[in-house]
Simulated assay, not measured.
Amino acid sequence: MALTIKGIEAAKPRPDKKNGKLKTVRLADGNGLYLEVTETSKLWRARYAFEGKEQMLSLGKYPVVGPKEAREKNFLLRQQISQGINPALERKKEKSLIKEAIKEEKRIARGEAHPLSVEAVALEWLEDVRKRWKQSTYDGEKKRIIKHIITPLGAMRIDEVKPSDVRSLFEKMEAENKFDTLRKIAENTVRIFNFGIAVGKCENNPAYSIWKGLSFRRPDPHRDSVT
């Protein structure tokens, strides 16, 4: 028999006959849904079986979650089970996504780059090669990478960058006759994506095929400089 608001409001834990302590009461609502009544709370729970194992899932506290909403949640839970989905695992995935979203909001508020962004991977690569370069070389390369790679592509996830994005980047420098700069940036773009693959942050190098197709014409000394 379905629970009523009156019955829910009146429900209280019962004294244990052996020790006199208040004992949790479970009131069945039907279809595996019940209300767990303790001294301090009334909690909706759903009991279900998945792959032969009995499991329980919390559906919220009364009165924040009323009986109608609890039944709707229980119905959706049963639908998931019929589709071969374990509601408990889905709940864990949802919580994980929420935690990631909160972390992302805090990261943005602090002005930090996403760990999978082109900016983050490019800076990580720079730190990795820093020990093999002179300080002056490092400073110059970092300045160029920030200007020509991070500024236009930095906010993108490195695993979502397409060859067309890289092509546009290179074409802009080519149109400006910055062939020496283009050569250096093309080489470092390939290296950054190779580094991203090595550290498991992307699977493909969209810069490689574009880089191989570049002619790197001899720069006009009156029109080009490495910047």
Rank of each mutant, 00 (worst) to 15 (best):
L3S: 02
T4D: 15
G7Q: 09
A11M: 04
P13C: 06
R14W: 01
K18M: 10
T24H: 11
G30P: 01
G32I: 15
G32M: 14
G32Q: 12
L33H: 06
Y34W: 06
Y34P: 01
A46K: 12
F50C: 00
G52D: 11
E54T: 12
Q55T: 09
M56K: 08
L57Q: 09
L57M: 06
S58K: 02
S58W: 01
S58D: 04
L59N: 07
P63C: 06
V64Y: 00
G66S: 04
P67V: 12
K68P: 01
A70T: 09
K73N: 06
K73R: 11
R78E: 05
Q80H: 01
S82F: 05
P87V: 04
E90G: 06
R91D: 02
K92A: 13
E94R: 05
L97P: 09
I98K: 13
K99P: 08
E100S: 10
I102L: 02
E104R: 13
E105A: 13
E105W: 07
A109Q: 10
A113Y: 00
L116C: 00
E119P: 14
V121G: 02
L123C: 08
L123V: 00
V129A: 10
V129R: 14
K131Q: 13
K131R: 15
R132T: 10
Q135D: 15
Q135V: 14
S136I: 15
D139F: 11
K142L: 14
R144D: 13
I145R: 08
I145T: 11
H148L: 01
I149N: 10
I150Q: 07
I150S: 10
P152I: 08
L153C: 11
R157K: 08
I158N: 07
K162P: 01
P163Q: 02
S164I: 10
D165S: 09
V166C: 07
S168R: 11
E171F: 01
M173D: 03
E176V: 01
N177P: 03
F179P: 08
F179H: 08
D180Q: 05
L182R: 01
L182M: 08
K184V: 05
A186M: 05
A186R: 07
E187M: 03
N188Y: 04
T189V: 09
R191V: 03
I192P: 07
F193H: 00
F195Y: 11
F195E: 06
I197R: 07
A198F: 00
V199I: 14
G200C: 03
K201Q: 03
K201N: 07
N205K: 04
P206W: 01
S209T: 15
I210W: 12
G213V: 15
R217P: 13
R218H: 14
D220S: 13
H222W: 10
R223I: 12
D224P: 12
